[in-house]
């Protein structure tokens, strides 16, 4: 490997403060400035071994305004919401909520790898819920696979068949009855996107 002579200095003017402000305003994210950088989150996280930046590093970078690095980090998609970090954090930071908030920013700004399943699933999930009020795992998985890794459908079918044979695949949507479904849709619309 040949050495790279690109300077990796971060200039102050490259930093963006708005991300920290947004996280601070998120329920559960208000304590990010209490972080001791002790690494309890990373040490506890079952997924941290796969992360490019550990939760600790992400929080450090959010505080300092390294927005681009944070939003482009693969780590935020790896969080499986197991809350191990949240219950152990000595600073009382709800790390899981911070990770959710970072996912929201990335999805909102459209910054994630093309055909990347996590945000696609989240968006499909939301779409299905808005139309039926409930989810159907079969169609959810199907749509996600089609939009991300259609080839996987080929390897998944034996499993699907087994599930079908055992009566565990429901091919019809499980909708909330009409008037209630309509009212749910109105509620979701009225609470709206971020104000």
């Amino acid at each position: 490997m040949s050495p790279s002579f690109q300077p990796s200095v971060k200039y102050q003017k490259q930093l963006k403060r708005d991300l920290a402000a947004e996280i601070l305003a998120t329920p559960g994210g208000e304590k990010i400035y209490s972080c001791l950088q002790c690494g309890t989150c990373g040490g506890s996280c079952p997924l941290s071994g796969y992360m490019d930046f550990t939760p600790r590093q992400l929080i450090g970078m959010v505080r300092e305004g390294f927005k681009q690095e944070v939003i482009e980090s693969f780590s935020i998609w790896l969080c499986a919401s197991c809350y191990e970090c949240t219950v152990r954090c000595p600073a009382g930071i709800h790390v899981t909520d911070v990770m959710y908030a970072l996912k929201r920013v990335a999805i909102r700004e459209g910054i994630y790898p093309r055909r990347f399943p996590v945000p696609v699933l989240a968006k499909e999930f939301m779409r299905m819920l808005k139309s039926t009020g409930r989810t159907n795992e079969f169609w959810l998985a199907f749509k996600m696979l089609v939009k991300t890794t259609p080839l996987k459908l080929l390897t998944m079918w034996p499993l699907g068949l087994q599930m079908l044979r055992r009566g565990r695949l429901c091919l019809t949507f499980n909708r909330i009855p009409k008037p209630a479904g309509e009212s749910l849709r109105q509620m979701l619309e009225s609470v709206g996107e971020r104000q």
């Binding site: 950088q37 309890t40 996280c45 941290s48």
Partner: peptide, 10 residues
């Protein structure tokens, strides 16, 4: 299990 925060490794 620990995050070695100086080296940046789990």
């Amino acid at each position: 299990r620990v995050e070695d925060t100086l080296i940046g490794k789990i």
